[in-house]
C-alpha cells in the first residue's frame, strides 16, 4: 500500500467513524433531517466563503451552526414542526449554494467538488480536523455519559430531572455541525447525508444495547467510507457516490438481518 493510499484509507476511516457517530446522535434526537439541513447549510457556507474570500472551513461551520440555531426558535415561534422548518431551510441553503455556483463560473469545478466531494484530493492537513470532529462528540458521550443518554432518550424528561438538557443538546448539535463541515470536501454536501444516516440506522437495527449502537454506528460509518473508497478504486467510480452506495447496501443488509431475526422470534413463539 502506498503512502497516498494510506492517507485516503485513514481519511475514510476517521471521517466515516465521525459521520456514523454524528448520525447516531441526530437520529437518537429524532432529528434525522438535521443532518441534511446541516450538510447543505455547510455547502452554502463554503460557496459563500469562495465568494467572500473567507476561510472555507470557518464560514461553512458558521453557516451550519446558524441554520441549526434557527430551527428551534422558528419552530417554536411559528408552531411548526422542526422537520418542516428544516426542510424549508434545507431547500433555501441548497438554492443559495446553486446560486453561488452559478454566479462564480470561473471556480465552478472547485465548487462542484464541494457538492460531490473527492476523497482522493484530501491533504494530510485535513486529517487532524476530521479526527477532532470524531473525538469531540465521543468525549462528550464518555464524560457526560448519563446526561447525554438521558437527553438522547427524551430531552424534556432529562430537563425535568434536573439535567442541563439545553447545554447538552446544543453541544451535540454544534459538534454534529462541525463533523458535517469537515467532511464536506470528502463526501460532498449532497451525499454526506447518507453517511450520516445509513450506518447509524443500520447499527440501531442490529444493536441490542446503547453501547453497541454507539460503537456500531462508528464502525459501520468507517466501513462504509472505506468500502466506498475500495469500490471507487476498483471500478474507477466517483468516491462520494461509491460511499453512498455502500452505505445503502449496509442499511439493506441490516434490514434483512432484522427481518430474519424478527421472523425467527415469531416462529419460536409459534412452536412454543
Amino acid at each position: 500500500m502506498t503512502v497516498l493510499q494510506i492517507k485516503w484509507l485513514l481519511t475514510a476511516l476517521i471521517g466515516g467513524a465521525g459521520c456514523g457517530l454524528a448520525g447516531f446522535l441526530l437520529i437518537s434526537l429524532n432529528l434525522p433531517f438535521m443532518g441534511v439541513c446541516l450538510s447543505h447549510a455547510a455547502l452554502a457556507g463554503a460557496v459563500l466563503a469562495y465568494f467572500l474570500g473567507t476561510p472555507v472551513l470557518g464560514t461553512a461551520l458558521v453557516a451550519s451552526l446558524a441554520v441549526a440555531a434557527l430551527v428551534g426558535p422558528i419552530a417554536d415561534k411559528t408552531r411548526t414542526h422542526a422537520n418542516t422548518v428544516m426542510s424549508i431551510l434545507f431547500s433555501l441553503t441548497l438554492g443559495l449554494a446553486f446560486l453561488g455556483i452559478g454566479l462564480m463560473q470561473d471556480r465552478r469545478s472547485e465548487l462542484l467538488g464541494l457538492m460531490w466531494g473527492n476523497l482522493l484530493l484530501v491533504r494530510w492537513a485535513d486529517i487532524p480536523p476530521l479526527a477532532l470532529a470524531w473525538l469531540l462528540p465521543l468525549i462528550l458521550l464518555i464524560v457526560f455519559a448519563k446526561e447525554t443518554k438521558a437527553v438522547l432518550f427524551d430531552r424534556e424528561i432529562a430537563r425535568a430531572s434536573g439535567i442541563h438538557a439545553a447545554a447538552i443538546y446544543y453541544a451535540i448539535i454544534a459538534l454534529c455541525g462541525f463533523t458535517v463541515t469537515v467532511n464536506l470536501n470528502i463526501v460532498g454536501g449532497l451525499m454526506l447525508y447518507s453517511l450520516l444516516t445509513n450506518p447509524a440506522v443500520a447499527a440501531m437495527q442490529v444493536a441490542q444495547t446503547y453501547r453497541t449502537a454507539v460503537i456500531g454506528s462508528m464502525v459501520l460509518g468507517a466501513l462504509c467510507a472505506a468500502g466506498g473508497l475500495a469500490l471507487s478504486f476498483g471500478l474507477n467510480w466517483p468516491a462520494g457516490a461509491s460511499i453512498v452506495l455502500v452505505s445503502a447496501l449496509v442499511y439493506a443488509v441490516s434490514l434483512v438481518w432484522r427481518t430474519c431475526k424478527g421472523r425467527d422470534a415469531v416462529e419460536t413463539n409459534r412452536s412454543w
Partner: peptide
C-alpha cells in the same frame, strides 16, 4: 425513542441529575 435501552438504564436516568454533571 429509537435508542436500544433496557429498563434499568431508563430508571437510572432518575439519578443522572441528582449525581451531578460528569460524575458516574
Amino acid at each position: 425513542s429509537v435508542m436500544p435501552l433496557c429498563v434499568r438504564e431508563v430508571v437510572e436516568m432518575g439519578r443522572a441529575g441528582v449525581r451531578g454533571a460528569g460524575r458516574s
